[in-house]
Design a protein around this nucleic acid. Structure first.
Lengths: 346, 346
DNA sequence: GCCGAGGCCGCAATCGTTTGCGATGCAAGG
DNA sequence: CCTTGCATCGCAAACGATTGCGGCCTCGGC
């Protein structure tokens, strides 16, 4: 005759497995943790493992975090998940983190410093062990302060001035050089640049790269042909192009700071009855999804999004494990994908 | 002359504010928590508040979670963040959650049940107070089990058979009806349906709606004209269309299960030298971003992504606050946005 | 046979909060 | 004056894990 069935109301805890294995919770803890397992007898370790297995014990990460002040999670600070650039990067990050036993907290800042500060604070109070930041501006007091406080940081797609932080970015110089070389080889001589925000390192480095590339191609650098966008967005790209067109400047091709800015140009073309690439060539940057199905398919410089995420996560894990190693940065090679938004000038 | 500067090495804790305010930590705790504040003298409460303010005290959510078994966070289970359908929904969810003081954990399952189970387990061990699930299949043992265990669930875009769970979905019937009515009004009589996976409620409900809509338009329902896609993806959409074309069936328009499937059709058109909408009209579903810039711009039925997220979060908060209220579901009205992928048949 | 050295394990403190319960003080009521 | 009640607050035990420290036991060396 079997006794009354004991219904377990609560999830099994370390004490439960210890009791079942006939040992002290401390011993059970040591047995369960591969790091400390050598400290206990192999036989009792087996007993503990078996007990844990049998009742389906899962360590409580909250209690563990409280005691150890670690959390096996890192924070992901991005401006807006809605930007199609980020999801693949996030996937890359998550994939290497999870194989390392880490998890990621994602927060959106909407480019709002106040919101960013609150979000970061919330991440820190959850004991994240590091931050991967995609919102860096060249002058970024918050990041400076965090760095001084010893928070491990890795930047993606961006740098901050005067701060040696590990970062992973695409090689903007190479990418832009390919873009203008392509345009020049098609016969364009008057090329405009719709630059990204100059508060971001990416914005200035691409703008610089643009000027250098013009020189390399033996083309004149007309400062009136580069105009700055306030954000990396379609709307700002459109606005910038309107200003440029209205200024009366002459040009036959555009290298846009990124794909969204390039797509903003499409809107202006439609407004003004221009056709691309007949009236105007455009090349973007980033190779966001679905560009191949656009009208016209956008020529762009492709960057390895997923690998950017992968490298960023690796860098962060490295700095967690080796805190005082010299900050390493990785530069990923872009490639030009030529589609139908570029053609010889008429 | 000022004394030596005391450098605070550790973040301020409740004991610190209690000490500073000259009270016991318990009292400080009660004073800080609006729920329990009436239990302490108004004057001492003020003292505590001021002390907390002065040293920048932030409660430690980890310790709080450990004690209360709550966490002020909910889990978001989605198949793949890379699918552009989800980011806006996620934003909607996050926005209402954060104003309610909650946070969201996002996990990807890649449609892999094993991975899903592990991810959900990890969420539960972090004491999430509920789950918003976008990966539901009609037959979903995991969700059944979770529901039986009392986990608060709300479904987004999906239902599960035989389970009364709160859910928020677009009105598939209405959306599909609009799509085929549009096609019929253009003069199409042979309309095909590239259905989504029939393991998902959305897949079957759109397929059913398609047949009903044909009837309503007085059109014949030829079962050979609907073929099922294994996933909601471009590749599967393309594959399905190839099969349909190869079968020799005749049709002049396609209602795709969603936008990705519709875009998959574009690839096949290119392969086979067909042009859209001249040779074939297509309408999608979901209104994912950038469809207006596609070649051709895709006619689709738009659903309010952000609001779906908002409603889902509200539903979940409701079930958290009123656990045994009858499950409520919300159906959001879609709208047809007509672009250039649909035209009269030749 | 005794001593020292490890190996193995238990004790108890600790992480930062929350919360049931009891102690205290004071005012009101009998 | 004594009881009762209430408002206020402190005590201490949790929550579930980790970990320094020390105790016990065994074994080997002398």
């Amino acid at each position: 005759m079997s006794g009354p069935k004991i219904v377990r109301m609560t999830t099994p805890t370390l004490r439960d497995v210890a009791q079942l294995a006939g040992v002290h919770p401390a011993t059970a803890s040591r047995a369960l943790n591969p790091q400390t397992r050598p400290l206990v007898n192999a036989e009792t370790a087996r007993k503990v493992l078996r007990a844990a297995e049998s009742i389906g014990y899962q360590p409580n990460p909250i209690a563990r975090s409280l005691k150890t002040a670690r959390s096996a999670t890192v924070g992901l600070v991005i401006p807006d998940l809605t930007n199609p650039l980020f999801p693949p990067i996030v996937r890359g990050i998550e994939d290497v983190l999870t194989t390392a036993g880490y998890n990621a907290w994602i927060v959106n800042t909407d480019n709002d410093p106040g919101r960013e500060e609150r979000q970061v604070e919330s991440l820190r109070s959850r004991q994240v062990e590091g931050l991967i930041v995609a919102t860096a501006r060249r002058d970024h007091p918050l990041l400076l302060r965090l760095h001084r406080q010893g928070v491990r940081l890795v930047l993606v797609n961006r740098r901050v001035d005067g701060l040696e932080l590990p970062s992973v970015t695409a090689d903007d110089d190479a990418g832009i050089a390919m873009a203008v070389a392509h345009l020049a080889s098609l016969g364009h001589t008057k090329i405009a640049h719709l630059a990204g925000p100059q508060q971001t390192s990416t914005g200035v480095s691409r703008a610089r790269a643009f000027r250098h590339a013009l020189l390399d191609q033996g083309l004149a650098d007309d400062p009136r042909l580069t105009v700055e966008c306030g954000y990396w967005s379609e709307a700002e790209g459109a606005q910038a192009l309107r200003r440029l067109l209205d200024s009366g400047a002459e040009f036959t091709a555009i290298v846009a700071g990124n794909d969204l800015i390039a797509l903003g140009c499409y809107d202006v073309f439609a407004e003004r009855g221009m056709t691309c690439p007949d009236d105007m060539s455009v090349v973007g940057f980033n190779e966001m999804p679905f560009l191949d199905k656009m009208r016209p398919p956008l020529t762009t410089v492709a960057i390895p999004h997923y690998e950017i995420g992968v490298e960023a996560a690796r860098l962060l894990l490295d700095t967690i494990e080796e805190p005082d190693r010299h900050p390493r940065s990785v530069l990923l090679a872009p490639s030009l994908v030529v589609r139908a938004s570029t053609a010889p000038p008429r």
